[in-house]
Design a protein around this nucleic acid. Structure first.
Lengths: 234, 234
DNA sequence: CGACGGTTTGAGGGAGATCAATCTGAGTGG
DNA sequence: CCACTCAGATTGATCTCCCTCAAACCGTCG
């Protein structure tokens, strides 16, 4: 939570958008509102009208979609400074939900679109962000299409570790990228990786028994053999 | 092949980019070249410098990536009028290869980027195209993460049928979206769907035996029970 | 005709799903 | 401080879908 104060809250394209432009956006639209989300609270519903776009301020959001018979697939995760929402389309192609406690900065989609139209530089940044999001999504396709359970979990652990912003022992400012807290439950991990909760659990146990990771209280992970994980994650 | 003459060759964002702008692009850069590709010929290599961006004129291209140990995953297909390539980045994050005979209209990436910078309207169209490509890619993630073999093939058949531009019996101008030619081999279908060739073949046989499709000479498919496929594909 | 590439069909095995039982730990109330 | 509860996690047993390996089939081309 205290992360907020030490981070800028860039709009649209993360760290690379000039803060000045962000400020002006807030001014012009008058709609850049902070909003707190409880665990499991949904910001956008798949198929519903997409009223908002937003930036993640703190917490982790999941983007997900469902088959007609209710199977869920997580499409991606959004971390602080990530942009979420779908400009230039009426209905949201996926749902956006908070994994844990989260804070987002929301803008009315129409205001945002109008503003983008009038500011080519922001549009360009949004384009670059979207292109790299597309790259990321395609890498995830490789995972879903070709990786086995072990490789999938290794990839996720490294991904979360690289996004890690958890100070150890409440020691604010001290970061240790080999120990971190999982922002999601086993079930949510299973959904992200396209596996079942049992398979995920067995893989955790396997990594623990092999001395690759240490697990404290389900959610706190310490990476002991990063090399092993990296070899698996390609 | 004769399709070419009856279709515009829009640049960057398909049907929605004004032809005028396309013309001007060709003029300015002087590099909008037609290029013929043989089956299996690769236009861009994963990890190599991305020299080109291009538009598909005819044929079908595949975008693919590989794991470190050589397993391939197809990331998507590009049909006539689709944009391919990755502007604003040095190296191509995936390979682009022609499935069959293909013609593309290539532009030097740097020329394209410069031009985009100077033409906000084109940039906007490219952004919209990229956003919808991202949507499409995410739908494919659902397929890879949650669909079984039957559902995957049903999805592909409907996708190809909807892209179908094959006149029946050489009767140009006459289109029948329930009969079409597959632009790829069984092996390529397997790669697209994240399956093996044997599983794909068995599914084809199963659909045929169930009276869902008709198969003539491996590649020509007639959909007899679209409702069944749609129920599976969701 | 024979050769060869792509496809189909068959038999068997394995990774992960499914079904089911047990465990853990945080929260609650006595 | 200790039962009790309950959701989430783990472990076990079994099954199933798809992969793997292998053989047969088919159409094309020399």
């Amino acid at each position: 939570m205290t992360l907020i104060s030490v981070r800028p809250v860039p709009f649209g394209t993360g760290r690379s958008v000039p803060t000045l432009m962000i400020m002006r956006l807030s001014f012009l639209t008058g709609s850049g509102r902070r909003r707190h989300l409880d665990p499991g609270e949904t910001l956008l519903w798949e198929g519903e009208e997409a009223i908002f776009v937003a930036n993640v301020v703190s917490g982790v959001m999941k983007l997900s979609t469902q088959t007609s018979d209710g199977r869920e697939q997580i499409l991606g995760l959004a971390y602080p400074s990530d942009f979420i929402g779908r400009p230039f389309t009426e209905t949201s192609p996926y749902s956006v939900e908070a994994l844990g406690e989260a804070v987002v900065c929301i803008f009315r989609r129409l205001d945002f679109e109008r503003f983008v139209h009038e500011h080519a530089r922001l549009e360009h940044k949004l384009l670059e962000r979207t292109l790299s999001e597309l790259d990321k999504t395609r890498r995830w396709m490789l995972l879903l299409g070709r990786f086995n359970a072990e490789e999938r979990l290794a990839t996720l652990l490294l991904e979360v570790a690289s996004r890690n912003t958890l100070p150890i022992d409440g020691n604010a400012g001290q970061f240790d990228d080999e120990q971190f807290e999982l922002p999601m439950s086993r079930q949510q991990i299973a959904d992200v990786l396209g596996l079942t909760i049992e398979t995920v659990s067995r893989q955790f146990t396997k990594f623990r028994d092999e001395g690759v990771i240490m697990i404290s209280g389900h959610r706190t992970i310490t990476i002991l053999r990063r090399d092993v994980l990296e070899a698996l994650a390609t």
